[in-house]
Structures are given as C-alpha cells and as structure tokens.
Write a protein that binds this DNA or RNA. Structure first.
Lengths: 140, 140
DNA sequence: TTAAAGTTTAGAGTTATTCTAACTATAGAA
DNA sequence: TTCTATAGTTAGAATAACTCTAAACTTTAA
C-alpha cells in the first residue's frame, strides 16, 4: 500500500506503473510522482500548472490522459465534490471520507474508521457504498 | 413547509414567490411549479426541455437565472453529486441525504432521521454539516 | 532497421453554465 | 392614460473543464 505523500524514487514510481500495466514514460513518471508524493487533492489544472513548470514540454491532453490512466488502474482516485465542478485526484486509494474546510477550501482525508454509520433504509435499498463529505472549519 | 411534489395552484406558487421577495413572472411561476410540484431532482437541462414544451417561448438563460433565484431565496436547493457534472435541483429544502441507484441513475431522498452518524474527529475540526450520498440499487 | 504499436501533442470540439447587451414588460408617477 | 424607471427575458457570445482527433514522435520487437 502506498502511504500518503510518501517519498518515492523515479525508479520506484516506474516500477509501480509497470506493475500496473502502464508503460512508464517520462510524462507519466513525473505526473504520477507529483500526485502520489507531493500534491494534495490536486485538480487537473493544478497538475498541468505543475507539469508546465517541471517538464520541458507537456500538453493538457497528456495530463488528462495520464490522470485518467492512473485512475483506471487504481493508482489514484478521482473525486467530485459538492462545492466544486472540478475533479480532484487523490493518492489515497483506500476507502475514506473527506473534510472540506469552508474557510480555506482545503480538503483533508478522514479515515473511514473515524465514522460509524447507522442506517435505517427500506429492505430493498441495497447499499454498495456511500460518499461522505464533512463541511466545516479546522481551527488551529 | 412545502411537501415534496405537492399540488399547488398557480396562485399559490405566485404567493410563495412574492412572499420570498421574488416578483412573480409567467416564467418563474411555471418553472417554480414544475420543480416544486412535478419534477424529481431535475437538471437545468431537463427544466429547459420541459419549459420549451410547456411555455410559448423560453430561453436557457431564464431557466438558469430562475433556478438560481429560487435557490438563493431557499425555495429549492441545488446539489452536485459525485456521479455527475450537472447540478440537480431539489424541492426538498430540509436537511436530507440521497440514495443514488447505480442501475437506473435514479436519485431518491433519504430522510436525515434514517441515518445516525458517530464521528470521531480531532477536537479542532468544527463540523457544520455533511453531505452523504448512498450508492446502490433499489430492488423491487 | 524497420514496421507496428503505443504515446504525446496542438488545436478543435463538446458540455454545462454564465455573461452581455438589446429588447420587453410592468408598476408607479405625472 | 401615458411616461419612465426598473426589472425580467432573450439570443447569442463567452467561459471553463474536459474530451477528441489526427498528425508527429518514440519505443518495442522481430
């Protein structure tokens, strides 16, 4: 399992890609490393901005393609939240929830173990899962 | 309080609008009546389609403006869900959750009383509310 | 070394929504 | 009743976030 914002070498990222059936290219290694090791719930736009500054040349399509590919093979996850129309990418691939700080716009992962849910739904409602987003403020 | 998919006369809709500080126009009365009394979690597109068929003339901008106005004054609510990039409008203005049928795409309201949530978050996380969407299937 | 296959790219296209500027309706003043 | 100010509606342009396309590279594998 990949730990959030871990430090991985390019070689380790490359292995990770190949192990998941994704041929490792320069662009994929860079983007994967950024999303897995550096960024925090970035949007495609943020990844593109980063990539423009950190690769000699990159196109928007490659960023979207790569994020799509990484999501497909399960190396990252894509989320869409109520407060925004942009998809954000998350290196945390385990089941978890989110806390949205309404003041700062910051998104924080919430471990699923910190939430207990008691549901009383009709028998014929078969629940496969649920999305849960807390809204509030993180005081310091 | 407005009951979901209630039957209201045009006059009652008009009163509702005026009481909420929204001058009643033909377009607003029609759209409001449709979203409050007839539709079930419609998108702006669905409201526009309905309006095109039920008003002599209507523009997309009016549909968006009106849905925005109705949302602002609290007569309806706007939701954005993980499974779609379209905003849906809900005549249920009370706190509640949703069940998304992955087979049919249907959205169903879930009363907040049918969910008990136990949260164990750090002290400094002040929760103002949360969005909860069940994913699954409604068998019949 | 040479195809075949896969990857990246620029730029065009799409979708949902918002903006703009002109036109229209309405309510109160004269 | 007529005028005028204000607000509402409209068509069409603009925007934002993606997605597609077709050409140009790059590998990979024989």
């Amino acid at each position: 399992m990949i730990t959030k914002n871990c430090v991985l070498t390019n070689q380790e990222i490359e292995d990770l890609l190949v192990k998941n059936g994704v041929p490792a290219t320069l662009q994929r290694i860079a983007i994967c490393k950024y999303v897995v090791c550096e960024a925090n719930h970035p949007t495609a736009e943020q990844v593109f901005d980063w990539a423009k500054n950190n690769l000699q040349k990159i196109s928007q399509a490659t960023v979207y393609n790569t994020l799509g590919t990484l999501t497909e093979v399960g190396l990252i996850r894509a989320f869409r939240f109520p407060h925004s129309d942009k998809v954000v990418y998350d290196c945390n691939t385990q089941d978890h929830f989110h806390f949205f700080d309404e003041k700062t716009g910051q998104l924080v992962d919430v471990d699923s173990s910190s939430v207990k849910l008691n549901i009383d739904l009709p028998q014929n409602y078969k629940v496969h899962g649920f999305d849960l987003v807390f809204k509030g403020e993180i005081k310091n």
